[in-house]
């Protein structure tokens, strides 16, 4: 699971695996908890490029990370969303707290812009 994570300018990028269920969400939570304790993370980008399955455990994982970044007024981004994932995400109500953008690059641009203003 190591290469799921990328750190850059206090941005944590999580390349989500193919399936995001309760089992896998638990593993990701463990390793992100570790990253949050040893690194300063202000914003989190969830990359759905490889993901074709997610259930409500994935929603819980994202909400949990949202609560963490809120302490530092950071944001959570969701990128590379397929139509299939869009169906789940739009029902879940997650877009009230997380921003959907097309690509990782778009998310980074948004974060850089936000930090300079």
């Amino acid at each position: 699971m190591e290469n799921l994570y990328e750190m850059k300018d206090e941005i944590l990028i999580i390349h989500l695996p193919e399936e995001l269920d309760h089992h896998i969400a638990g593993l990701i939570r463990e390793s992100t908890d570790e990253l949050f304790t040893c690194k300063k993370i202000r914003d989190v980008v969830f990359d759905y490029k490889k993901t074709s399955f997610m259930d409500s455990s994935g929603i819980g994982l994202i909400m949990g990370r949202y609560r963490e970044v809120r302490y530092l007024k950071g944001d959570v981004y969701l990128v590379n969303i397929s139509d299939k994932m869009e169906r789940i995400l739009s029902i879940s109500g997650l877009y009230r707290v997380a921003k959907r953008l097309d690509t990782i690059g778009d998310a980074i641009k948004d974060i850089e812009f936000k930090r300079t203003t």
Binding site: A25, R29, D55, S56, S57, I59, G60, L61, M63, G64, I88, I91, S92
Partner: peptide, 14 residues
């Protein structure tokens, strides 16, 4: 505390 979203039954219903 287990980061449940409470959306399980809502998804089954949807």
């Amino acid at each position: 505390e287990l980061e449940r979203s409470g959306m399980g039954f809502a998804f089954m219903e949807a």
